[in-house]
Design a protein around this nucleic acid. Structure first.
Lengths: 137, 137
DNA sequence: CTAGGGTCTGTAGTTGATACAGGCTCAAGG
DNA sequence: CCTTGAGCCTGTATCAACTACAGACCCTAG
């Protein structure tokens, strides 16, 4: 009597359950991030809980900035095949380093840009401090 | 006697003078960021100082994170046509806002990611704190 | 005279999706 | 019962911003 019915849902339902664009689901299947789901007699994709869980995993990984190739690596451990935990940790650390590098880059850009914008008077003259800065930097 | 010789340089020279990939120069010409340069009798592109200056301008703008469409806008004032200084200032401020938003995003990602990585023991066990976090977040 | 480097063109690949076009199927309302 | 609209199917095109060929010239130094 337990509610273990593996309720079969369609692509739109999976999209709504995860917040993922339906087209993106198809894309993930094409590149092998998501498995090819079983089909109904009429060819409709048929998903269940495992797909919801896996797609949410992918989306959280993406939200943390992992590339799809990195996600593929993470899933390698999930699928209990390729990766070990130590490898996952190493990958996450590399990724963390990249995130920090990006922050450093953008912070430098932010500083230069805000200084430049501050120097601009904003009137309609043909001279522009921003343009000058870009030319003479 | 002044050295005003408009020395004609080739694509590779322009690339070396600016640090820009030669293929990228061709691309910028195709999309109209850089003008179609005059050609030698044999069809070789022929550049001068103005091209060096303009390409450096483009590259500095790109280095500050402006999109090519934004660079096109900036060049609109350089070319003394479309944009006013006030419009350039407004654009730069919008861009600055986007940069700050990206920094905020990445900082949040950095925090979550470093917390997650810290929780990982890094041994070879099939359990992995990183994977678990991505599943259960 | 030939070997190498540079140049020319057009085209395809990259990442991570998103957006059609053209056709099928399905459920609800009249 | 029929229509209408939503959803699904496929394949393909598009976006940013480049990068990387292939195949053909050309030019110069040894």
């Amino acid at each position: 009597m337990s509610n273990t019915s593996v309720s079969s849902i369609r692509r739109g339902d999976l999209a709504r359950a995860t917040g993922c664009n339906p087209e993106t689901i198809r894309y993930y299947e094409k590149i092998g991030i998501m498995p090819d789901p079983p089909r109904s007699t009429k060819g409709y994709r048929s998903y269940d809980d495992t797909h919801v869980r896996r797609l949410k995993f992918v989306m959280r990984s993406r939200a943390l900035g992992f590339s799809l190739e990195e996600v593929r690596g993470l899933l390698g451990l999930v699928d209990n095949r390729i990766q070990t935990c130590a490898e996952v940790q190493a990958m996450a650390e590399v990724h963390l380093g990249e995130v920090r590098a990006k922050i450093a880059d953008l912070t430098r850009i932010e500083r230069v840009l805000s200084e430049t914008v501050a120097r601009c008077t904003g009137d309609a003259a043909p001279d522009c401090a921003i343009i000058d800065a870009l030319f003479d930097a």
